[in-house]
Simulated assay, not measured.
Amino acid sequence: MGISFRRFLIGSDDRLYRLANAKFNRMIREPSSEPLPLFTGQRVRMADVIVELDGRTPVRILRDSFAILEFDGKGQLDFGKFERQQFALASSVIDAALAVPDPDNKVVYAINRFVAHGGSWNPTYAMKRRIEQAAFGEIACRLV
């Protein structure tokens, strides 16, 4: 058994595009080195899927997560915004787990939840099924 990490971008027309992990890592390290002209000036949905493999055959989805990426006028990833949203997501989870209830405090500090929410999305059942099919190699996706 093994695992495979697969990443997909979903265009405004709901078309799925496969994004190689190495390319995404380069986009994070040096956004100007890996522009995606197809997504210039857009907010683009992203799906990360971890697939369990038996040999080289995908057998099940272990985990999936959904984020939103923003691309500037040159097609470059706005990594700063993505990083802030991912940090806020992690912080909101940690804050909730470590929070000590205080019945006298009527103020809720929810800024991390709002920032994190702006960088995530929930797929419809049909879109989630298409992402799973792409992760299993049942449907073809253009590599970007």
Rank of each mutant, 00 (worst) to 15 (best):
residue 86 Q to Y: 00
residue 105 N to P: 05
residue 89 L to A: 02
residue 4 S to C: 13
residue 140 A to N: 06
residue 82 F to D: 11
residue 123 P to S: 02
residue 133 Q to G: 09
residue 36 L to C: 15
residue 117 H to D: 00
residue 59 V to S: 13
residue 116 A to V: 00
residue 124 T to W: 04
residue 115 V to Y: 04
residue 135 A to K: 10
residue 90 A to H: 09
residue 13 D to K: 01
residue 127 M to A: 11
residue 45 R to D: 02
residue 115 V to C: 06
residue 102 D to A: 13
residue 117 H to S: 01
residue 51 V to F: 08
residue 44 V to I: 13
residue 124 T to C: 12
residue 88 A to W: 00
residue 64 D to S: 08
residue 123 P to R: 01
residue 35 P to Q: 12
residue 65 S to T: 01
residue 115 V to G: 05
residue 40 T to R: 12
residue 70 E to R: 13
residue 68 I to Q: 08
residue 92 S to L: 01
residue 77 L to E: 08
residue 114 F to N: 05
residue 79 F to T: 13
residue 71 F to A: 09
residue 64 D to F: 04
residue 134 A to T: 07
residue 26 R to M: 15
residue 84 R to T: 05
residue 24 F to H: 08
residue 77 L to M: 14
residue 108 V to P: 03
residue 103 P to K: 12
residue 51 V to Q: 08
residue 28 I to V: 15
residue 7 R to T: 15
residue 58 P to E: 04
residue 142 R to K: 15
residue 66 F to Y: 06
residue 63 R to G: 03
residue 2 G to D: 15
residue 33 S to P: 11
residue 7 R to H: 12
residue 77 L to K: 07
residue 78 D to H: 11
residue 22 A to I: 15
residue 70 E to L: 14
residue 113 R to Q: 06
residue 120 S to L: 01
residue 135 A to P: 08
residue 66 F to N: 00
residue 140 A to M: 06
residue 26 R to N: 15
residue 72 D to M: 04
residue 119 G to I: 04
residue 37 P to T: 02
residue 134 A to G: 05
residue 79 F to H: 10
residue 24 F to W: 07
residue 37 P to Q: 04
residue 84 R to I: 00
residue 138 E to C: 13
residue 89 L to V: 02
residue 11 G to L: 05
residue 1 M to E: 14
residue 30 E to V: 07
residue 59 V to R: 15
residue 127 M to S: 12
residue 92 S to T: 09
residue 41 G to S: 03
residue 17 Y to K: 03
residue 93 V to D: 00
residue 74 K to T: 11
residue 82 F to C: 13
residue 24 F to Y: 13
residue 83 E to C: 12
residue 76 Q to C: 14
residue 72 D to E: 06
residue 122 N to H: 09
residue 42 Q to T: 03
residue 125 Y to C: 11
residue 94 I to V: 08
residue 143 L to M: 14
residue 26 R to F: 15
residue 29 R to Y: 14
residue 84 R to P: 00
residue 31 P to K: 01
residue 104 D to K: 13
residue 142 R to H: 13
residue 77 L to G: 12
residue 8 F to D: 00
residue 69 L to F: 10
residue 98 L to P: 04
residue 129 R to L: 12
residue 118 G to Q: 02
residue 104 D to V: 14
residue 130 R to D: 02
residue 129 R to P: 08
residue 43 R to W: 06
residue 11 G to D: 12
residue 54 D to C: 15
residue 105 N to G: 07
residue 134 A to D: 01
residue 28 I to E: 14
residue 88 A to V: 04
residue 103 P to Y: 09
residue 71 F to K: 09
residue 64 D to K: 07
residue 122 N to A: 08
residue 136 F to D: 05
